[in-house]
């Protein structure tokens, strides 16, 4: 297993946001985490990158315990790339600078800036046109591309995508799904947090459903459509 999350509890202030949560991701696997708003998807992802400390439980990566490592070490040495739900592109930096941060900061054997640019332009040719634009002036969809490309520039083994398809027009969603498949071809494992069940089932090879901070389903994405109660919980009605 590449990533193993074992029975983690996560508290924010007095609120417990994750309860005894376990999940794992294998090498070359694309996994989706689906759940309604407030279910705990973002909290799970932030715990994996290390932005939320876990109260109990353990997270291992490539067999190594990373539970106590700070986020910057997980990003540069462990090999976890993170694209947050609101993109969080650095507004004053150009697209190029946003993306090159990862190349500069990464601690594994480096890919040249040129090769990295090529890899990224292969996945998101749209970025070529806005390469010198400041983050502030990018559209929502462009910001998503920049955010994913920025995470890729760290050359991660695991890519965490929080709400990668949110707010995108249906055709653009298709375009992003294609990009996700291309990223997978690079040998990168992917965890996608998604609130739309249909999209989740479409991109995920394996699916976890989360509700109230607990995993309520793990397995074949297509099978969730056979369980109406489960489906209702995920959709939130």
């Amino acid at each position: 297993m590449l990533l193993e999350v074992n029975n983690i509890d996560v508290n924010i202030g007095a609120v417990q946001v994750l309860r005894d949560l376990s999940m794992n991701i294998d090498k070359d696997e694309t996994v989706v985490l689906v759940g309604r708003n407030g279910a705990g998807k973002t909290s799970t992802i932030k715990s994996i990158i290390g932005l939320y400390p876990v109260k109990s439980g353990k997270i291992t990566f490539d067999g190594k315990d990373i539970t106590g490592l700070p986020p910057h070490v997980r990003a540069t040495r462990t090999g976890i790339g993170y694209s947050p739900e609101d993109s969080r592109v650095f507004p004053d930096l150009t697209v190029e600078e946003n993306i090159k941060l990862g190349i500069w900061l990464s601690k594994h054997e480096k890919m040249s800036e040129k090769d990295m640019e090529e890899t990224i332009f292969n996945i998101f040719p749209e970025l070529k046109r806005i390469w010198n634009r400041r983050g502030l002036y990018c559209s929502g969809g462009e910001k998503k591309m920049v955010s994913i490309a920025r995470a890729l520039s760290l050359r991660p083994k695991l890519l965490l995508l929080d709400e990668a398809f949110e707010g995108l027009a249906p055709v653009v969603v298709e375009r992003f799904i294609k990009a996700v498949n291309q990223i997978k071809q690079l040998g990168i494992s992917i965890l996608i947090a998604e609130s739309n069940v249909n999209i989740a089932a479409k991109v995920g090879e394996r699916l976890y459903a989360i509700d109230r901070g607990e995993i309520i389903y793990a397995g074949d994405p297509m099978k969730i459509f056979q369980d109406q109660t489960l489906l209702n919980t995920i959709r939130g009605y």
Binding site: I49, G50, H72, A75, F90, D92, K100
Partner: peptide
């Protein structure tokens, strides 16, 4: 400079900079 761009990124969004590998 790379250092300066990293510094500005951190001043814009500390949490995101940490997740990108900045030792804040």
């Amino acid at each position: 400079t790379k250092f300066g761009i990293i510094l500005r990124a951190t001043s814009l969004d500390r949490e995101m900079a940490a997740a990108m590998g900045v030792n804040v």
